[in-house]
C-alpha cells in the first residue's frame, strides 16, 4: 500500500485507521473528532455508556452512516466514499445488534447468500451450488452448532441460534475485519458460554471490533479496550488499565 497520507508518517501497519472522524445529526455530534487504530489480528472491544456513539462508529465504518468529516482507512483504502457493498467486498463484515437473518430462507440458503461468489446480478443468476459451496456451508454449520437444522427455515430458530447463524453468515464471508455489535446480548447462560467459545474460535487470524457490555466476556476476549464517552475516546489500553482509569470509573464502571 503506497497510499500513505501526508503527515501520517509512522504507523503504516494498522489495518484500520480512523482519524478525526465526526458525524453530526442536526447539530448533535454523535461521534466527535474520534481517532482509533486497529492492528492486524487485534481484538478490540469498545465499551461505553448508552449514547456514547459505539454503534454509530460501526455504522460509519460499514458505510451505513456517512461521516460529516474525517477519514476511515482500511488497508490504506478510504472507506468513507464507498458504498456499503463495496466496503464488504474490501473485507469488512458486520453483525447487527438484533439478529439479522432471512426468516423465509433455510439455514443453508442463509449461509449460501453470504458465500463470497456470484454477488453481481448475472453472477447470482448463473451461480451453481457446487460441491465446494456445499462443503463450505456444512463446515460452517458445524461450527455454529446448526448442522442438524440446515434445512429448517430461519424463522423457526431460537434467538441464540439466530445470532449464531448471523455469525456464521459473516464467517463464510471471511472478512479481514469483523465487527460485532453485542454478540451475546439476550442469550441464555448456556448459549452465552457456547457463543463465547464460538467467538474465540472465529476471531483467530482476523481483526475484530466488538461492542459489548458484558464485562466478563470483554475480559475474556479483549486485547485492548476503547472506552467511548459522548462521541470521544475517553480511555484506551488493556482491560486492567482501563478499569483503573479514574475517568472511566467516574463515567461508566463506577455506576
Amino acid at each position: 500500500m503506497t497510499t500513505q497520507p501526508i503527515g501520517q508518517g509512522m504507523a503504516p501497519d494498522f489495518l484500520l485507521e480512523i482519524e478525526n472522524l465526526t458525524v453530526s445529526f442536526d447539530g448533535f455530534k454523535a461521534v466527535n473528532d474520534l481517532s482509533l487504530y486497529v492492528d492486524k489480528n487485534e481484538i478490540r472491544v469498545i465499551i461505553g455508556p448508552n449514547g456514547a456513539g459505539k454503534t454509530t462508529v460501526l455504522d460509519l465504518i460499514c458505510g451505513r452512516t456517512k461521516a460529516t468529516s474525517g477519514s476511515i482507512r482500511f488497508k490504506g483504502q478510504e472507506l468513507t466514499r464507498l458504498s456499503e457493498n463495496k466496503i464488504v467486498l474490501a473485507g469488512v463484515g458486520r453483525k447487527f445488534q438484533t439478529p439479522s437473518i432471512y426468516d423465509d430462507l433455510t439455514v443453508f440458503e442463509n449461509l449460501e447468500i453470504s458465500y463470497p461468489r456470484g454477488r453481481t446480478v448475472f453472477g447470482a443468476l448463473t451461480f451453481r451450488r457446487d460441491a465446494q459451496v456445499i462443503e463450505r456451508i456444512e463446515e460452517i454449520a458445524e461450527m455454529i452448532f446448526l448442522s442438524d437444522r440446515l434445512h429448517e427455515r430461519g424463522e423457526f430458530l431460537s434467538h441464540g441460534q439466530k445470532q449464531w447463524l448471523e455469525i456464521g453468515m459473516l464467517l463464510i464471508q471471511d472478512p479481514e475485519l469483523l465487527m460485532l455489535d453485542e454478540p451475546v446480548a439476550g442469550m441464555s447462560v448456556t448459549e452465552r458460554v457456547k457463543t463465547a467459545e464460538l467467538l474465540n474460535r472465529i476471531i483467530k487470524d482476523r481483526s475484530v471490533l466488538v461492542i459489548e457490555h458484558d464485562m466478563k466476556f470483554v475480559e475474556d476476549i479483549a486485547h485492548r479496550v476503547t472506552v467511548l464517552h459522548q462521541g470521544k475516546v475517553l480511555s484506551e489500553g488493556s482491560m486492567e488499565r482501563v478499569q483503573n482509569d479514574p475517568k472511566v470509573i467516574e463515567v461508566y464502571l463506577g455506576h
Binding site: 457493498n85 432471512y102 426468516d103 423465509d104 447468500i113 453468515m169
Partner: peptide, 30 residues
C-alpha cells in the same frame, strides 16, 4: 429465476434489505 441464487436474494431483500447490502450485494442493482 426463482430457483437461482438471484431468486433467493430477492426473498432475502424483501426480508432484511440491510443484511443483503452488508453481505456485499448492491441491493439497488438487484
Amino acid at each position: 429465476v426463482r430457483a437461482s441464487k438471484l431468486g433467493r436474494i430477492l426473498v432475502a431483500m424483501r426480508d432484511k434489505e440491510d443484511r443483503v447490502r452488508f453481505s456485499g450485494y448492491s441491493v439497488a442493482s438487484f
